[in-house]
Write a protein that binds this DNA or RNA. Sequence first.
DNA 1: ACGGGCGGGACTGCCCGTTGGT
DNA 2: ACCAACGGGCAGTCCCGCCCGT
Lengths: 217, 217, 217, 217
Amino acid sequence: MSPTASEPPPGTEDDAAARAPGPRERRRVRTMRDIQAQALRLFAESGYEQTTIEQIAEAADISPRTFFRYFPTKEDVVMWDEYDDLVPEIIRGRPVDEPPGETMRVITRDALATLYKRDPDRLLARQRLLFTAAPLRARYLEFIHSGVGLLAEMFATTRGLPPDDQKLRLTAVALIDAAGLALERWQDTGGKDDLLVFFDQAVEALIDGVGELRSRA
Amino acid sequence: MSPTASEPPPGTEDDAAARAPGPRERRRVRTMRDIQAQALRLFAESGYEQTTIEQIAEAADISPRTFFRYFPTKEDVVMWDEYDDLVPEIIRGRPVDEPPGETMRVITRDALATLYKRDPDRLLARQRLLFTAAPLRARYLEFIHSGVGLLAEMFATTRGLPPDDQKLRLTAVALIDAAGLALERWQDTGGKDDLLVFFDQAVEALIDGVGELRSRA
Amino acid sequence: MSPTASEPPPGTEDDAAARAPGPRERRRVRTMRDIQAQALRLFAESGYEQTTIEQIAEAADISPRTFFRYFPTKEDVVMWDEYDDLVPEIIRGRPVDEPPGETMRVITRDALATLYKRDPDRLLARQRLLFTAAPLRARYLEFIHSGVGLLAEMFATTRGLPPDDQKLRLTAVALIDAAGLALERWQDTGGKDDLLVFFDQAVEALIDGVGELRSRA
Amino acid sequence: MSPTASEPPPGTEDDAAARAPGPRERRRVRTMRDIQAQALRLFAESGYEQTTIEQIAEAADISPRTFFRYFPTKEDVVMWDEYDDLVPEIIRGRPVDEPPGETMRVITRDALATLYKRDPDRLLARQRLLFTAAPLRARYLEFIHSGVGLLAEMFATTRGLPPDDQKLRLTAVALIDAAGLALERWQDTGGKDDLLVFFDQAVEALIDGVGELRSRA
DNA sequence: ACGGGCGGGACTGCCCGTTGGT
DNA sequence: ACCAACGGGCAGTCCCGCCCGT
């Protein structure tokens, strides 16, 4: 669920390095966290578009050039999440004989739940930004879309389903839209209510609504 | 369905003007068509990002400044469609006592069909662009999303449903995703096969997939 | 002789516009002169590489962005000369039955003389810069080289000679090198001595030296 | 004749090292050859400017930073030639009582011939690059110019002539221009014809053309 | 309505000094 | 000791905004 930056340049080191971050990577993550924190603060204060990279850089005590070393675009500083590989973990935790629909529903719900518990404030802040800045919203949707592809691919690799299975992809995207709608409603309440309740309601509405499409047959 | 430019500046003159174009508007549309044609040609030749506004302007024999008078952004020159208000027309043509799901399915299908018949080549060209240029893809998704809101709103006004009805919105977005998937598959075949067949298949897959979510109850 | 900027963007208007500059062009030239003056001043004070575009822009009361509208590169602000079409004028002033060697010698000498009389200080300043900043020197040589091509072309059009005549091109470039050497010596004297005397001496040396190549035959 | 990199950083170890390369230097040269090969390949494929240092580094399996350890600039990777000190060798091989003009002519011709025989393909590849990429052309001219100075200096030390002798310098540069013109014509034929024939023709043309300058007296 | 002048901000590429890991 | 990664600085390009004259 969590939007992810487009893979910062150094990219894919081997798995070993991924598991045991090493001091290099640790430092990198710390810097990114700092920059993101400053950026989100400034965005909340003055708005996304009104805040320039130069200001962010100054606040984070780096040069503008360095900003781009960590985040390829201004949008990425919003989207990046240091714990990003949620979905793969969750998917690996499910029994392989579980019905795919069930698995996807659980994945989506768990991802949402984890984000929610880990840092609800940041989730809310980002959610708000998504509604005020058009390019961010666009980026977010882009992320969702590409995420669906990855999800389908993971199913394909772990369960031997075809990676371009239409049913899978459409269900996944519908679930993610449900999650998005839940986030929207949750944000409207100012983050008071329970996000997961909204999600469950949205899924029910989805099932109902799509079910009614059948009528035509 | 058709992506629409974000309402060019002069914008909505009163409805009268909209119905009876008038020579002013005619000329405007012609210019926009010219610019778009040149732009799409250059994009196909050299790629979206590699083509600058200046080049488009020169090819269309206007100043760069004037380009922005017609299209607020570079993206819009791709998205704009001179016959855009498809959906409202179609929705007005449906009996008000038809089940909403049925209506939405028909709307989506008809919109797709109209686009398809009117100018399949341009549809294909745009579709291709959507896959090569990230900002365009983002813009397209943005358009979809906002379109869903409009759709729900139209239902609300014509049929008295609440404008933020979850069931409606989720069904609409799911249908549009199905249409998107159909377009994708259609494009992969190079535009040879029948787009609507792909759409119908996608809808069936959607119904199936979402139906399986129920199991958990 | 005078190095010329790579033709600022708007470029070649028709000849009419060239002859009667018009207020637009006048303003443009004035701005360019201002920017160049500030730039040369700063370069003389702090060196070419140490001076940033931002500093030049600030000194000239324009934005950095605007600097690039007038001069496509930092080098161009040094190379540009508002009276640039010297050579074509001179060449047109020579009798067509004059021996080509003679004409070229006169052209080179006259061009040098005109530059010298018009603004010896700026000539000296530029000459000094050419020796301190490598990229400028490179740019200057590039200019010379392309100039030779143009020269040969002009001969071709006005006198019907083949545009890629080797004798012509080699003589032209040798003469220009002689002029360069004269400028070098002149600059070493701090601009006190007579530039044209140095030029004449250089040409004699050239004739002598190349003549001795014959021996081998 | 062969363009030379501006003396890579570690630079001139003492002459001993120069004469007996040593394993260190051997390894260095091998690496440089590898990098250059990859670079020239990429340049030929995608163009000089379109190819980034990063791409070259990746293709050569080094870090971008390391690229600069071997070649101070992107241009140098084109200019560098592992057998560079041609001219000094040749000049030392000539009898000291030979007329200077004759010596220079032979030097230039021999240098050209050696380059030609050693690796005509690379010579052609570089020549082509010189015509497509402006900064390279500039760099090349820069190299020529500085080479003339060195040449004059060598004459001065081996034969006791004044190092700033005008005749010498102008003759040298004229010969090198002749060589350049020959290379140009040779490249136009696609490297089929004999480069040295072109050179001899160019020298004749030079002698002719400059001879005609005398007429004015 | 059109064009031009100008500004500004995101972003990239080259290049270089420094530092920390191996 | 070496070399990769890190960080910074500057030139340059593009999109897009505003204001003005015509």
